[in-house]
Simulated assay, not measured.
Amino acid sequence: MPVKRPNPVLWLYYQYGGTLPARYREWVLRDATCKTWVLRVLVRCLIQVAPLGAVLFVGLGVLGGSWPIAAGALLLGVLVVVRIVLTSSVDSVDARLVRYGYPPGHGSAVRRQRDAEAAERYRAVWRQPPPE
């Protein structure tokens, strides 16, 4: 049975911190534990910062002064936000999963198990003892 994905409006609502209906619970788990989960956290961060960044860039740069200074300030601000988001990504993703009824730390446990299985497959293929 395929995982039910939210439509674009619900997806955007979810990116801004909204809670999806219960029928998307499995999709939220997949979103939080797939191989690209860190990239997804980064995209979520950038989507949340984009409107404020655009308003500040237009307000500070285009309408009120020097746009290179506004662009530099905006870039530094985005870099700070990205660093904060990435350093707290594990905890924030696990907390998001708790809102959907998963036990605390479930996302981290699923990712650890997936990584251990991948490491085992790698060892089985590439770390065989040399033939004698």
Rank of each mutant, 00 (worst) to 15 (best):
G18W: 01
W37Y: 12
L56M: 06
W37T: 07
P6R: 00
V38I: 12
R83H: 10
R111Y: 02
K4H: 11
I84Y: 04
L63T: 11
L86N: 00
S89G: 02
R23P: 00
R25M: 03
V93R: 10
E26G: 06
Y100V: 09
V49L: 15
V62P: 00
N7W: 05
N7K: 06
R127Q: 15
A70R: 05
H106F: 13
R23S: 07
Y100M: 10
L20M: 02
L10C: 00
D91A: 11
S108A: 10
G105A: 03
Y24S: 03
A71R: 04
A124Y: 01
P68Q: 08
S88T: 12
V81P: 00
L46R: 09
G72L: 14
A70E: 04
R123H: 10
H106Y: 14
E132S: 14
V90F: 07
E132L: 15
P131W: 11
P51Y: 01
P129T: 10
Q15F: 03
L79R: 04
S66C: 10
R5L: 11
R30S: 12
V78F: 03
A50I: 02
D94Y: 04
A54P: 02
V28F: 07
L29W: 01
D91Q: 08
V49I: 12
L39R: 11
R83I: 08
G101L: 03
P2A: 15
A73Y: 09
P129G: 09
R123E: 14
A50N: 11
A116I: 05
R30H: 14
G105P: 05
W11G: 06
P129V: 08
V81M: 04
V85P: 00
V98H: 01
G61R: 01
W126D: 06
K35H: 13
Q48L: 12
Y102A: 07
A22P: 11
Y16C: 12
L63R: 14
N7G: 15
G65E: 10
K35E: 13
V38Y: 06
L60R: 09
V82Q: 03
P104D: 07
Y24G: 01
A119M: 06
V85A: 13
L86D: 00
G17D: 01
L60H: 08
F57A: 07
V81L: 03
W67D: 09
L75T: 14
I47W: 14
L79S: 11
G107I: 07
C45N: 14
Y16G: 12
Q128M: 06
A109P: 03
V78C: 08
E26M: 06
M1W: 08
G105K: 02
E120D: 14
A124R: 13
R83E: 10
V125R: 15
S89N: 08
L10T: 01
V110F: 03
T36F: 12
V98L: 03
I69V: 15
R123D: 15
V41E: 14
L42P: 00
G65P: 08
R121E: 10
V55C: 05
G61M: 02
V85C: 03
E120T: 13
V98S: 06
R123Q: 12
L39H: 10
P8L: 14
V43N: 09
I69H: 13
A118C: 02
A22H: 12
Q128N: 07
L46I: 11
P21R: 06
G72S: 11
R111H: 01
P8W: 13
